[in-house]
Design a protein around this nucleic acid. Structure first.
Lengths: 345, 345
DNA sequence: CTGTTAGCGCTTTCAG
DNA sequence: CTGAAAGCGCTAACAG
């Protein structure tokens, strides 16, 4: 027993399918009697319109796709949450697709979205703009959140990773720290590279020799880096981790090694994921309003879909904001903790 | 300039649309020459089949929908991650829809999925089974992850919340704690209620007066409860929070109040979200393999979709497992921390 | 105000 | 081996 179609409804209501369609989308004018009969039939059959069929002719799916590199960790879930919130307000569906590390997989995913979505938000920090552009029909509205999208013929929202990293590094230096180490994100990741470059620039500006350890944005790699740092002959007195999850790992490793933070080693992260204000010491970081950025991305995509054709692509820049918490502040007393809790809780 | 259709390809290749279709799905037999011509046309036009149109006739969308109450916190993001992983392996798309607190919204969301998905995973701890059943055509495969779905005519995966809560409460009692308080989840949430009931059962079993504080599964409510507990005349010496996020809040509030955990107050949570092994003290909890459960849910849905008709609905039960960490262990020394780190990092 | 009639882009008999 | 034609369920002119 299959689901009822518009024909079944029409038959039962003894009207034409056109009338049913009209009632359901209240379009045109419909007689009082017709309308009633249709409604009766609709819920007698508990009819629900087939959105696939509808979108074939209306040429809209009321769905947007999100292509993510990964779904791990708080960053992406916050981002999706923001998008979902905005999507819900606009009565749009969200189709998510993740784990696209390489260009090949990503462009396959993009292709397979054709006919399913009205537009795409693409987040692929590993991909260069050229590879992306290749796999996308010009007709599909796309919003890029790709570190390297600055100069591409597509609208984008990009985080000022370089500037943020510089700011964090300078903050650490301003606290009187000299040997500021950096735990870098994965090679080939444009965001990671921008952050590393920002760090290097700030260190160069201060005339201090940089120290870079490898990481991959995961907590475990931060832990390893932290352990390595704790064991160094000339131990750094501050660490700027490429993101909060790694900063967390550093924090734990330091603690394990019997080092105090911030007294012995100050630590700074990047992103301001929710957990950052829930650990002790609370984590100094460069705040990105992650959910807000996700929401914004969806809203911009919607307007791209709206003016179907050609307003020239706009590139929006999100500037992360320094949030000083216990892990880097000289006077990390009770007050600091209180302030953070008020915000985190 | 619109995207190319199968007709355009056929025209350019000078064959019929039927042949194009055959080549693309390699079905039937196609002449070598035809195949080549089609392929050429396909990538000359960079043609991508319109999946919406295809699914109209094949009656499958290769997409599954996920209805969630919320997207906040680590629990749901882990769950989605697991589903996404499984979906990707099976080359399925995932369409997520959240923020369905009330039955009305949820059933609207369910309806609007018709024609978009081949099946649905529904997670709605607020909804009773009856309301759900009403809004679902029998023909749509559905997997319920709903605390109250035990007896409904649909397949389900449910967590043994009652048993888990009992186990945790008993664990706390076994540590020699007597005044074990419970921070409950939101009223009307079936999972929350089962956990509360499990707690009450265990306390009754031990012949100890229960103490229940209100919460809503958010970290902030845990914080408030923790503060309240710290201020009690006869202060509890253990707290079982209804989930990890609230347990975290309790931990922070206790710490704020100058109380030590576990020495003064032991704390236990529920879920084992990733963060639980990253806070200090590390959090004792009832572990659910969240991502694994999500994956399992998707896989079961797929098999439901597979045997289109009627294998009778199966109800799978996930039994949470006690994970003892620092927040409740009597000897919370260096060793404990190490063990946890090895696992968390 | 309502019904008839084309399709949307694709797959799939059924003939050739 | 290939093409013509009939729809999948729905909407949108266009007549009545």
């Amino acid at each position: 027993m299959k689901a009822a179609t518009i024909k079944d409804v029409a038959a039962r209501a003894r009207v034409s399918v056109a009338s049913v369609s009209r009632v359901l989308n209240d379009q045109g004018v419909v007689g009082e009697d017709t309308r009633r009969r249709v409604m009766e039939a609709v819920d007698a059959l508990s009819y629900v319109p087939h959105s696939g069929a509808r979108s074939l002719i209306t040429r809209k799916t009321d769905t947007v796709g999100v292509i993510l590199p990964d779904l791990f960790g708080e960053f992406f879930s916050e981002l999706i949450r923001g998008m979902d919130l905005a999507a819900r307000e606009k009565r749009l569906h969200l189709i998510v697709s993740s784990s696209h590390d390489d260009a090949e997989e990503a462009s396959f995913a993009i292709k397979s979205m054709r006919g399913r979505v009205d537009g795409l938000i693409i987040l692929s920090p590993h991909l260069d703009a050229a590879a992306l552009a290749a796999s996308m029909p010009r007709s599909l509205p796309v919003l890029l959140m790709n570190g390297g999208a600055r100069d591409v013929e597509r609208s984008s929202i990009i985080v000022d990773n370089h500037g943020g990293a510089e700011a964090m590094t300078r903050h650490l230096l301003d606290q009187g720290r000299r040997r500021v180490a950096h735990v870098a994100g994965p090679g080939g990741n444009l965001e990671a590279e921008a952050r590393r470059a920002g760090y290097l620039a700030a260190m160069a500006g201060a005339g201090i020799e940089p120290v870079v350890l490898d990481g991959d944005f995961d907590q475990a790699s931060g832990y390893r880096a932290g352990a390595a740092i704790a064991a160094m002959d000339i131990r750094p007195d501050a660490v700027f981790a490429g993101n909060d999850m790694m900063a967390l790992g550093v924090l734990l490793a330091l603690q394990e090694a019997g080092l105090r933070c911030p007294e012995d080693v100050a630590v700074g992260g990047f992103d301001d994921v929710p957990i950052s204000s829930l650990v002790r010491p609370t984590l100094t970081t460069m705040r990105i309003d992650i959910a807000g950025t996700g929401r914004r991305a969806l809203e911009r995509l919607v307007s791209l879909i709206g003016d179907a054709g050609e307003s020239s692509p706009a590139h929006e820049i999100v500037r992360p904001q320094l949030v000083v918490r216990e892990s880097s502040s000289s006077n990390s007393g009770k007050g600091g903790a209180k302030a953070v809790l008020a915000q985190g809780g």
